[in-house]
């Protein structure tokens, strides 16, 4: 089954990188993928949107995702400012970088029980503790791996190690791997 993901973040939080990183991880499962930002005017701090498609068969669509299976929100301050649930499939999933309990998130989102699955992960705290900086993008990929099964966590970790190994110093790579794994373990579904 093809999975279409829409990312919501603020410019500078690394959503485009996360959307690409998740896509590249899918290659390890011999899947097809596409990752692209919404083509607008990106500015640091402004709300931005990016997309990832992952599929066992070739992907031909070259347009934005309008009815996502999964919505990933990297910044809790977007809730109430951006309609993050727009077009989400009735049985879809929303994963939010959120510091509170998942029941509270469900209320904030205004999602009734049944139907849409809601998941919360405190990616800002995880990245602050592990990386010393609030960069929630890599932990969000760990949480998505757990909640959606779009790509297995071992492949996510292996992809990070291989693709970022040359770009970052070893302690930074290790800290990110810990953050990804922690988010995978700590994400709650309500």
């Amino acid at each position: 089954m093809a999975i279409e993901i829409r990312w919501h973040a603020r410019g500078g939080q690394g959503a485009v990188l996360a959307s690409r990183f998740l896509a590249a991880s899918a290659l390890r499962e011999n899947k097809y993928f596409q990752a692209f930002p919404q083509f607008g005017t990106e500015r640091m701090g402004a709300p931005i949107v990016a997309f990832t498609r992952v599929s066992p068969s070739p992907i031909h669509l070259h347009c934005a995702v309008v009815e996502p299976d999964v919505v990933a929100v990297m910044d809790p301050t977007l809730l109430g400012q951006v309609d993050v649930l727009a077009g989400l499939k009735p049985a879809g999933t929303v994963v939010v970088n959120y510091p509170g309990p998942v029941e509270e998130l469900r209320r904030v989102l205004g999602v009734k029980d049944g139907g849409v699955r809601v998941a919360a992960v405190d990616a800002t705290r995880i990245s602050s503790e592990e990386l010393g900086r609030p960069i929630p993008n890599t932990p969000m990929v760990g949480a998505l791996s757990r909640i959606t099964g779009v790509v297995g966590i071992d492949n996510v970790l292996a992809e990070f190690r291989e693709s970022m190994g040359a770009r970052f110093k070893p302690p930074v790579v290790e800290a990110n791997l810990r953050a990804i794994r922690r988010a995978y373990e700590e994400v709650q579904v309500g």
Binding site: A23, F33, Q34, A35, F36, P37, F39, I59, H62
Partner: peptide, 12 residues
Amino acid sequence: LDGFVLSHSVER
């Protein structure tokens, strides 16, 4: 190639 649609889209 189509700007952004292909130029900035990661594909296999």
